[in-house]
Design a protein around this nucleic acid. Structure first.
Lengths: 353, 353
DNA sequence: TTGTAGGCGTTATCAG
DNA sequence: CTGATAACGCCTACAA
């Protein structure tokens, strides 16, 4: 490992000059040509600063802690992590990972994270919810992902739930559907009333009436094929907006049992939490995708901009500090979700026949 | 932050004595009572060593790097990460996460990991496969997870694929099934021939013949309902061993279309990659669960035992070093998978009727 | 058995 | 504008 001292010797400059130049803080202290010369020789020598030494001195580590507690029981974690990792990597940060699934020692894990010097924390939930951050994080830079604290005191990023319901329903309306069922969730989730609100809004905006008989709410983990079947037979909807992929599966099963084909006889759009639905169901379902990647990405960006205090416009990809164009993180409290068309929505024509 | 110096002062001892005692290396250098006294005052003061300073000195960070490239496209990552994290946490290590999904700069990310001083690396794949580790890792402590290198030079942990096929098929045989179909995968995967081998072995051991007409291999990402339907109708199997959950879904759909009920009219066991299957399909499917958690856990344990050179029996949960009973990682090249019974396998009686 | 001092690689302070 | 030099907190010869 080449050190700053070696660079100084080779470049014929002092350690101070080297440190200053390499951090682009030469303004007025080191003359321009020398600074440039130093940077060149540093590069030539393949110099990279030693993060440990730097941290010891600055008590900043260019490290963020990713804290999550449901990583193993949901399939969404991967994208969240990838998004955060991408942003961190772009900005020259490393991610320390802490998972506390089903363990009581979250506080201990956070303490470790602090000792290792994490500059800030991403506190991620796998289901959009109200969640206050643990007390041990209250004095640290923290961004909540896929959750909001009770008073919105902590910066947070969540999906635009209302838009989900609105976009899906609108799409079904546009395809010519007349009787659009809402297959919701009876569990106490933030998302449920919001998505339903979007559903209602879309119907209203289209001049259609809201029919309570077309709505049903079933629990996430109980058998509910029977109740959905009943709605299916008594109400004969021609389209379905499903709260999530578990419900999408029920509709596929109902259709299969009745010899109906999705995308021809009935239309369906579901929120997709889970790749199996969009990748294996036939015909492929049209889905609304939760913005897990985006939440991770913008969460990390926001956190880092908070850490760096917004005025520090530096990025450190290889350990060397360089200038970057911008390090602004917008504050997208709500992220709009993508609607992916795949063929489970009937064309206008077939609905009218 | 309280430092080693302060502990020394309060305890009325020298810095050396404190460092030695706190690292349990006093043997003969510090007298026992003093060492004990020092440890007590350290605890009382809430002293935790500063990892940066320690690392700067020792060039060891008690940090391992977790490298993965498919984290966002598969749902298995969570358990893998959780397992690794659990082991790391138990042994006082932190996990630095690097995800390289679809990016070409794996080498760069690994370089970062190295600069940050990771003591070793977990190189994880999401599908069991042959995978040589990148050259930049060849001189580092590395453990392959869910993959093996071409010559088994790198320590690795993979599922016992043959046992998967054997256990599932045996279970079906025991329940009275006579015509057990094998719904395999036509993609080039390590697991395919091995699981099939287990299927064949189980049949042979039970004195049953292997019927090629009952076997089918379909691609992972093409529509294949039609071909499976054909097998369903022409061969009339009474049981199915499915290579993965996508195939399980096809069998459920075939059954629904024909008014057959799984667990009564036909039996089914599938490998479950994906929670939606076991949580929402009705009746609940009996599954073989891939040992993602275990691979992560034992992978990390093995790595750390490699790092610590096996003789160093220390653990450092809060940054303080203490004695631990053992730090052995077995070498379970193959991990046997759990079979979870959930009711998609018919009872003997019904098969016999 | 204990204490002192030097050094790990940086950054920051303060004279020149 | 430049360059010594002192920290940062820890570990470890080596001297006492």
């Amino acid at each position: 490992m080449t050190t700053i001292k070696e660079v100084a010797e080779k470049a014929g400059a002092s350690v101070t000059a080297v440190s200053l130049s390499l951090n682009h803080r030469e303004n007025g202290h080191v003359n321009k040509e020398l600074a440039e010369h130093i940077r060149k020789t540093a590069k030539k020598l393949g110099y990279h600063p030693n993060p440990m030494a730097r941290s010891l001195r600055t008590s900043r580590t260019r490290t963020i802690g990713f804290i999550s507690e449901e990583i193993a029981t949901t399939p969404y974690a991967g994208e969240l992590i990838l998004g955060a990792q991408d942003a961190a990597s772009e900005l020259g940060y490393m991610m320390l990972m802490v998972v506390t699934d089903g363990k009581a020692d979250e506080a201990k894990e956070i303490a470790s994270l602090k000792r290792y010097g994490a500059d800030g924390f991403l506190y991620a939930k796998m289901h959009n919810r109200i969640s206050n951050i643990p007390r041990s994080l209250s004095n640290e830079q923290t961004v909540l992902i896929n959750a909001r604290d009770a008073k919105d005191h902590v910066p947070n990023i969540t999906p635009d739930e209302v838009a989900i319901g609105y976009d899906a329903t609108t799409k079904l309306i546009d395809s010519g559907a007349k009787r659009i069922a809402y297959i919701g969730c009876s569990d106490d989730l933030i998302a449920e009333p919001l998505r339903r609100k979007g559903y209602e809004q879309a119907l209203t905006d289209a001049g259609m009436s809201v029919n309570p008989n077309l709505e049903i709410r079933v629990p996430n983990d109980g058998p509910c094929l029977e109740r959905i079947s009943e709605l299916f037979d008594t109400q004969q909807p021609d389209a379905f907006f499903c709260f999530n992929d578990a419900r999408t599966w029920y509709i596929y099963q109902c259709a299969a049992q009745r010899g109906l084909q999705i995308g021809r006889d009935i239309s369906l759009i579901g929120v997709d939490n889970n790749r199996i639905v969009s990748e294996t169901f036939e015909p492929r379902p049209t889905t609304i995708e939760l913005p897990h990647y985006e939440m991770g990405y913008w969460g990390a960006r926001k956190l880092i901009s908070l850490i760096e205090g917004r005025e520090l416009k530096t990025i450190d990809t290889t350990g060397m500090v360089a200038e970057i164009p911008e390090l602004d993180a917008p504050n997208p409290v709500f992220i709009r979700c993508a609607l992916i068309e795949r063929g489970s929505v009937a064309s206008k024509a077939s609905h009218r026949e």
